[in-house]
Measured scan of single mutants.
Amino acid sequence: VTLFVALYDYEARTEDDLSAHKGEKFQILNSSEGDWWEARSLTTGETGYIPSNYVAPV
């Protein structure tokens, strides 16, 4: 399991995006899409895309 933590708040801009709150942890499901990674929030269980530069490894 690849875990990352949000460094900043991010507000989803499309229905495919996933909002993130600073300190929230995510499981990365797919990081092969360049700057946008598919992730699952460990807080809400929701999945979507987050900007890779907004997260760091735990």
Rank of each mutant, 00 (worst) to 15 (best):
V1W: 14
V1N: 12
T2F: 12
T2W: 13
L3T: 09
L3P: 05
L3M: 10
L3S: 07
F4Q: 01
V5I: 12
V5A: 05
A6Y: 03
A6W: 04
A6R: 00
A6C: 10
L7C: 11
L7K: 05
D9Y: 06
D9N: 08
E11N: 09
E11D: 09
E11V: 13
E11T: 12
E11F: 11
E11P: 06
E11Y: 10
A12D: 02
A12H: 04
A12G: 10
A12R: 09
R13C: 14
R13W: 07
R13E: 10
T14F: 14
T14D: 12
E15F: 10
E15V: 12
D16N: 15
D17S: 12
L18I: 12
L18P: 01
S19R: 07
S19K: 06
S19A: 08
S19W: 06
S19M: 06
A20D: 00
A20I: 15
A20T: 14
A20W: 06
H21D: 04
H21K: 15
H21V: 13
H21L: 10
H21A: 10
K22I: 11
K22L: 06
K22C: 09
G23H: 03
G23S: 02
E24L: 04
E24D: 09
K25W: 14
K25V: 15
F26K: 01
Q27R: 09
Q27G: 02
I28P: 00
I28H: 00
L29K: 05
L29W: 06
L29A: 05
L29Q: 04
N30W: 08
N30H: 07
S31Y: 12
S31W: 13
S32E: 10
S32D: 10
S32N: 10
S32C: 14
S32L: 12
E33F: 12
E33I: 11
E33H: 14
G34Q: 12
G34Y: 09
G34M: 11
D35N: 09
W36H: 08
W36E: 04
W36T: 07
W37P: 01
E38T: 11
E38Q: 13
A39C: 08
A39R: 01
R40M: 12
S41M: 03
S41A: 04
S41N: 10
L42F: 06
L42S: 03
L42A: 04
T43G: 06
T43W: 14
T43Y: 09
T44V: 00
T44N: 05
T44M: 02
G45Q: 05
E46H: 12
E46W: 07
T47D: 03
G48M: 03
G48K: 02
G48F: 05
G48E: 01
G48P: 00
Y49T: 06
I50V: 06
I50E: 01
P51K: 07
S52L: 05
N53I: 11
Y54E: 00
V55D: 00
V55Q: 01
V55P: 00
V55C: 06
A56Q: 09
A56I: 12
P57H: 05
P57V: 08
V58D: 08
V58L: 13
V58G: 03
